[in-house]
Amino acid sequence: MRWIGALLVAVLLAGCARGAPAAGDFRPAVAGELTVATATLPLPGFWEEPGGFEYGLAKALADRFHLRLRVVRVPFERIVSGDLGGADLALSQVTATRDRDRVLDFSEPYLAAPPAGLARSAIPDLAAARDTRWAVKRGTTLSAILAGFIRPTTPPALTVDERAALTLLAAGSVDAVLLDLPVALVIADRSGGGLRVAVQVDSDDSLAVALPDGSANREAIDSAVRAFTDNGTIDRLAKRWLGAHLRGTEPNIPVLGRGR
């Protein structure tokens, strides 16, 4: 009798598993469509029209879930405050932090993105970094690193987006812009030698897909990111659009260690 009872309980529980996909179930907000939010469009290497690393990643997600892709612009401040503007997820070079984790869900990381300084000349060490005039996008982990670790003697210029910071650099109003390493590498690569990645900050910061807090789609997105990492999709996208190493730091660029 005990075994029959145990079997009945097992069957009842098993009923709860009906329709539980192996790698998680993705349910879009709009049927048939994967809506992806991003803040800066276009952004060299990441969101080009068409193409780019994050565009390619969004397309791969849409293909995996058999959905059409739709991209919407949502300001970065709204994204990191938890408002994706109705999108299913955001791909906008977002780094997962504890504060952001309270208002968003994050997938497994898809790209290592330690902070890096883009400048015209080398920045060999922390002392030189402190004497440099910086620009950085406000409200980002980069601005926090600039203020908390590098601590430049001249207060940094806080801009609304990367483009504004790069404009200041081009105008000579600042000496360097703090960016995620992959973004910095792309811009340096396309500057025709005018700019270089002058310094990196030691960090295990990584970019991740941002989802609405409590999203039921997180498991499916995590499985997708792992699958893309395993089957080389992310490698191929990074080589094509970023020309970058994916893990850790670039070998020939000075690295500033930091306490965390």
């Binding site: 539980a20 996909p21 192996a22 790698a23 998680g24 498991e219 499916a220 995590d222 499985s223 997708a224 990111v225 792992r226 699958a227 893309f228 395993d230 089957n231």
Partner: peptide
């Protein structure tokens, strides 16, 4: 299976 994205955390 988890690493290659066939299985999610539930499995």
């Amino acid at each position: 299976g988890f690493q290659i994205g066939l299985f999610g955390t539930s499995v």
